[in-house]
Design a protein around this nucleic acid. Structure first.
Lengths: 251, 251
DNA sequence: AAGTGGTCTAGACCACTAT
DNA sequence: TAGTGGTCTAGACCACTTT
């Protein structure tokens, strides 16, 4: 009985634990194992695949992380039913567009020191009227504008403005994957919004069309906000996608 | 030298590997370890924390999965700079609203058998004109409509329609976390859109306001589409959020 | 050659669940 | 009591990078 088909191939270059993950995923996606079914016990899997308990455990831990199975101490390991909520959305598409430096370009539309208004002050935990650096950028892909970015940066009068501008490029690092040592964490959120007149003009689109608004706040190592801003991205330029359940194409 | 401060507490109820993960994360979020820094080698960590190599490895593997560090064979383990692209968005908010069965309600607005039009046929890989079950649902939270769902289900004439309706409830299971054995996987995508007249009327909102459109296709174990549909969710009812980098609040 | 991460073993002991 | 998952050990061997 047991798995009948595939065993771990000990002489393969693929690690045993990874082979095991694939074997079990394959059994799920082919329907041999279905939601609610119990996996063979770890000791049974050990004997069948002729690997040590630790190797089996490692494979099962990975399946747990991937949301394929759940474990219940004393009872067994069970295949999870698919749940829509497990869907996870990434910013991959945006990343690839920006990493493609051949075809993407960042243009600074405006850069000036301004006093923080109420909203900015509240977002950045500073006093209203404090000076902040305000930057408007337009990001082009393949020659067409597709992202409009507005950002407020803490301005430190002790440092020359040149260095503040360095911060700008260091922020750019966030999006290009360069090293960055001044920022510790960030929060992001996505809203659905409608382009206003200014935005649609800049992005060369119809007024009042649908768009995503990706807002961000970045914090330094003292947990103080350093940057607040948002990207406007026309809805027809971007789409967030995700999959749930055991897809056959997965690794 | 080394970590100077915290060591793994062997007599704690928290597993050593989890303690190690927390210790290192704390060092990152406090700034003791910064982007690009190298961690002590695994053998050094073994000696310092008096645990076996496997335990260290497990902790480091977890940190790799969480995007905190990267490993380079033969060189060492390094703290990763934060990257916006690591942001991961979930449907938690939607889930919590629907799981709160006290305050949420699903109302079927329409349920009928119709011939598939071109778009439906293409999405579900069926022949134009094949019969599909068309369902319109309105989901209420705290008495207010906040999700409008339209869905097309494969109709199997060999099964009585009652069973097809069962499928409906089984799909509901997807959203309520019940067992489900007929579906294997699904793809989801999020668009930004603008409410049309029908949608805004049903959701009792202003015409042409911003909304998310969450589209889904679910497949059975033969990889055949079983359900295609989309949720319309007003933008001001929902927001997708994510964090990047080492936040102090994390486990 | 020395040091690093990567995989794996063959057990041990524990907590929990079922019977 | 027997079976299950959960943690952990004290090594081994390998591939890789640096010196």
């Amino acid at each position: 009985m047991l798995n009948q088909l595939k065993r771990v191939n000990r002489s393969s270059y693929e690690p045993s634990y990874a082979q095991l993950v694939d074997i079990i995923k394959e059994q799920v996606s082919s329907g041999k194992l279905r939601a609610g079914d119990r996996l063979p016990s770890e000791s049974q899997l050990c004997k069948f695949h002729r690997v040590s308990p630790m190797t089996i455990r490692r494979a099962i831990n990975i399946l747990v992380e991937q949301g394929i199975v759940t474990t219940e101490q004393g009872r067994g390991t069970f295949i999870k039913p698919i749940q829509v909520w497990e869907a996870v959305f990434h910013l991959d598409e945006l990343q690839h567009l920006l990493e493609d430096t051949q075809n993407s370009e960042v243009k600074i539309l405006e850069l000036r020191l301004i006093p923080a208004d109420e909203r900015t002050a509240s977002k950045m935990s500073i006093i209203i009227g404090s000076h902040v650096l305000y930057i408007r950028r337009l990001i082009y892909s393949h020659g067409k504008p597709f992202l409009y970015h507005r950002e407020f940066l803490i301005y430190d009068p002790l440092r020359p403005i040149v260095e503040s501008e360095m911060e700008v490029t260091s922020l750019k690092g966030l999006f290009k994957g360069e090293q960055n040592s001044t920022l510790k964490r960030g929060t992001l959120s996505i809203d659905a919004t409608i382009l206003n007149q200014e935005e649609s003009q800049i992005l060369k689109l119809c007024d009042r069309s649908a768009a995503f608004r990706l807002e961000h706040i970045f914090y330094d190592f003292d947990d103080k906000p350093v940057s607040w801003g948002w990207f406007i991205c026309p809805g027809n330029y971007l789409r967030f996608t995700a999959t749930v359940g055991a897809s056959n194409q997965e690794t």
